[in-house]
Write a protein that binds this DNA or RNA. Structure first.
Lengths: 152, 152
DNA sequence: TATTGTTATACTCTATAACTATA
DNA sequence: TATAGTTATAGAGTATAACAATA
């Protein structure tokens, strides 16, 4: 018998890999957020764009992309879709850039979505005390900074 | 130094969202791992399959998929590619299942890749003390379990 | 020259549906 | 009936290259 029968659990050589668990946790959390935001016909990436525009009215599309790590080429269809659904409006800054703002509809959708995000965040943090939450947040930001290639 | 008319630094409303930082950290770490593994012509998903087969010789393709959260439909091309590159071999168990094993080439490639993974893990954990590392790992596993939908 | 925004394209991972062959 | 494996296809996210217009 080179290994235990298939009815038993497999050995999981990835169980103690921080990078693997980081990915699995991220995928699981994103899937849940995606489901929850679907109520408002929003995808997570669209939601993040709305949040940045709301916090920085008049921001340009390129600036939003740099903030979120989304390339210009990929921002175009996202903003285009948000504009088409009347969630975001574009107003010319100069003749090559446009200022982005939320429409009233966009602000309303964002408001509803923020409740979903707050619930999601609560669920993520549940079971952690202050010290653990700080350690986790420090780890995540540190990893992001140390591993970032900043190509967007 | 020409600047756009808007502010130099944007407000980042996502800075304190655990879910967002989890995703950004995961994406950054995966991109680094992907680059590193490319030396061995392996993608992260392929590497994880090799690890599970190595730890469970004779495992079936479906079992590997369940362990890794990869659906049967997506396992087929992954294992097919690994077999075509002579990293994995299939041997019939019954007439619908096949046992997977690493070839000698597969074991050699895995050995080289494990060094890359070890370096990656070190880099991920650098700067954390024991307590922080435990808190982070507990958080990640807890999130994965609480948010998992187990549909694969 | 550098930047904004766009289109086209491709790759990875993920997802469902439909199908066969077998247990 | 349930499972193993396959194929086809689609949706997201991410990536590069190339282009026009403008700063």
């Amino acid at each position: 018998m080179t290994r235990t029968p298939s009815k038993d659990a497999l050995a999981d050589p990835l169980a103690n890999l921080l990078g693997y668990q980081l990915r699995r946790a991220s995928v699981a959390a994103m899937a849940a957020l995606k489901s929850a935001l679907a109520e408002n016909d929003l995808r997570p990436a669209e939601m993040s764009v709305l949040l940045v525009i709301d916090a920085n009215p008049g921001v340009t599309q390129s600036e939003v992309g740099r903030c979120l790590g989304i390339k210009r080429a990929n921002m175009a269809p996202i903003v285009g879709s948000l504009e088409q659904r009347a969630l975001v409006e574009r107003m010319p800054v100069d003749r090559r850039s446009q200022a982005l703002r939320l429409t009233r509809t966009g602000a309303r959708v964002l408001g509803r979505s923020q409740k979903i995000i707050a619930a999601h965040e609560s669920r993520l943090a549940s079971g952690m005390d202050e010290a653990a939450a700080r350690a986790v947040m420090r780890f995540l930001k540190d990893v992001r900074q140390r591993f970032s290639t900043e190509t967007s």
